[in-house]
């Protein structure tokens, strides 16, 4: 595939993410202005961070004039999951992706962009990644702008319906491999159960949601890597990645 085709495919694959981002960032725009940021400040926060949970935690700190170290700690804790994703993504990038391109791609490693990247069969090339980042980035920016400018442009029912878009996409990424491999399915079930526990068990609720996700993923991933390691020939790094790293059935 030519660079242009790859780029356009990235744009297309980024479209559902963009759709979801519009609603999430719209809500963020309303929130940021409500906290006391101006419209342009809210937009700048979105354009430089591109992270929903991190921004939601960061803005009250900025607006409230809390110590600078607070913002360092919250961003570290909430966004640490991105480093797990980046390690995973680093294994999927084609060797042709050079340092400067990696520096650019790193800017937009979000939950959703990561999710779509790893669901690709082939190694990831720069044009595809740039395309994949473009639409969600502008969706994120435009949504924030609209939300910051006028909280009630969109009817509540549409905002509510868009709220499920990103999660639906996660479902669409997880289900197909889980259907094919029992170990993946069980690993997902374990992560979900732990996540439910962190949400509803009083003592565990004290753990921030960012940390909770890291714990759920680490425990499930480590456990299944130990009891159901993937077979070598299937986890190859190259040309025929149709069943890349399919898990050996436990």
């Amino acid at each position: 595939m030519s660079a242009k085709q790859l780029y356009l495919r990235g744009i297309k694959d980024g479209f559902p993410i963009c759709l979801g981002y519009l609603s999430v960032s719209f809500a963020f725009g309303i929130f940021a202005v409500g906290c006391g940021l101006s419209v342009w400040q809210s937009i700048l926060v979105s354009m430089t961070n591109v992270t929903s949970a991190g921004q939601l935690a960061g803005v009250p700190i900025i607006a409230g004039g809390l110590p600078l170290i607070d913002i360092v700690i919250t961003q570290l804790v909430i966004n640490l999951r991105y480093s797990l994703m980046s390690v995973s993504l680093s294994q999927k990038l084609s060797p042709r992706v050079k340092l400067l391109q990696r520096l650019a791609i790193a800017f937009c490693v979000t939950d959703e962009i990561f999710a779509v990247s790893i669901s690709q069969k082939d190694e990831l090339e720069t044009p595809y990644m740039i395309g994949l980042i473009t639409t969600p980035f502008w969706g994120w920016t435009i949504g924030t702008t609209l939300g910051a400018l006028a909280g009630d442009i969109l009817p509540a029912m549409i905002v509510s319906a868009l709220g499920i878009a990103l999660y639906a996409m996660f479902v669409a990424i997880v289900i197909p491999p889980a259907k094919k491999s029992r170990s993946v399915a069980l690993c997902c079930l374990l992560a979900m159960s732990m996540s439910v526990a962190f949400r509803f068990i009083p003592l565990l609720q004290k753990v921030s949601s960012g940390i909770a996700i890291i714990i759920c993923a680490l425990v499930s991933g480590l456990l299944f890597a130990a009891i159901a390691p993937i077979s070598d020939e299937k986890s190859g790094d190259g040309s025929d990645q149709t069943s890349s790293g399919k898990a050996v059935e436990a």
């Binding site: 994703m85 939950d111 499930s220």
Partner: peptide
């Protein structure tokens, strides 16, 4: 496994 575990959680 990590991506699927992260997304599920």
């Amino acid at each position: 496994y990590i991506p699927y575990a992260v997304l599920s959680a």
